[in-house]
């Protein structure tokens, strides 16, 4: 009896099927790179949100908070997420306020605009690579299916040349073809799961950004009208 293992099947597969398998393997590897990288980035952003909110609401002076951030930048440490929004808004607010000619409402508007810009930049950072995961999740089963169809086609062509059609003639070809589908699913399933989970995470993080920028602008508003 001839022992058939998946590894042997892959090595003995026809070039077209092997090519499909190679593509799927690359897609799977790249999608896992993205999954891990997104996981690191998103969990760092989440932690950054908690950390910064804790510091922001601790009753610390806002200019003190801003100075701490500047020092951290000087030490070549990355400033992520919410703190970036805070810094953009606060910087614009201070600069406009120093100019006497500018009206209060214009100062508020300028600060809010700066925060909006920083927010969209942060959102972009968070959502990077997620479309790739979605594409892998939806396309790689089709690529796998394509490989399978080609493999089964080949094995049936081989069957046509046989005088005696037995199961042993077609079975290896079909098995090799099915491996392509298996690989497509193997690449697709984690990508889909990760895409769904990460897009939910991104939504919750951006939601907290929006809430924070509203709260912060209300604080600034109070400050500018109290003078």
């Amino acid at each position: 009896m001839n022992e058939l293992s998946p590894l042997q099947l892959i090595l003995n597969a026809s070039p077209a099927v092997q090519f499909v398998m190679l593509i799927l393997l690359l897609l799977s590897v790249v999608s896992w790179v993205m999954i891990t990288q997104r996981w690191l980035v998103l969990s760092a952003a989440k932690k950054g949100v908690q950390n910064f909110e804790h510091r922001f609401w601790s009753g610390m002076d806002l200019s003190q908070l801003y100075k701490e951030g500047t020092e951290m930048q000087r030490e070549n440490m990355q400033i992520v997420g919410m703190e970036n929004i805070f810094r953009a808004g606060f910087k614009e607010f201070m600069r406009l306020r120093r100019q006497v000619s500018v009206h209060r409402d214009a100062v508020m508007e300028g600060a809010q605009r700066a925060m909006r810009v920083a927010y969209s930049r942060e959102e972009e950072k968070l959502e990077k690579h997620l479309p790739f995961l979605a594409t892998v999740g939806s396309v790689s089963p089709y690529i796998g299916l394509f490989g399978t169809v080609i493999g089964i086609m080949n094995s049936f062509i081989g069957l046509a040349n046989q005088a005696q059609a037995t199961l042993q003639v077609v079975a290896p070809g079909i098995a090799e073809a099915l491996i392509a589908t298996a690989m497509g699913l193997f690449a697709a399933i984690p990508a889909v799961v990760a895409y769904n989970k990460y897009s939910a995470n991104v939504d919750s993080i951006t939601g907290s950004y929006i809430t924070f920028s509203d709260e912060f602008s209300s604080i600034l508003h109070r400050q500018i009208h109290s003078d």
Partner: peptide, 19 residues
């Protein structure tokens, strides 16, 4: 440690992990 890992956006670590 997590912040150190995220330097360079975490690409080297991710590649090693995926492979």
């Amino acid at each position: 440690t997590l912040d150190n890992v995220v330097i360079y956006n975490g690409y080297p670590v991710s590649i090693v992990a995926a492979v």
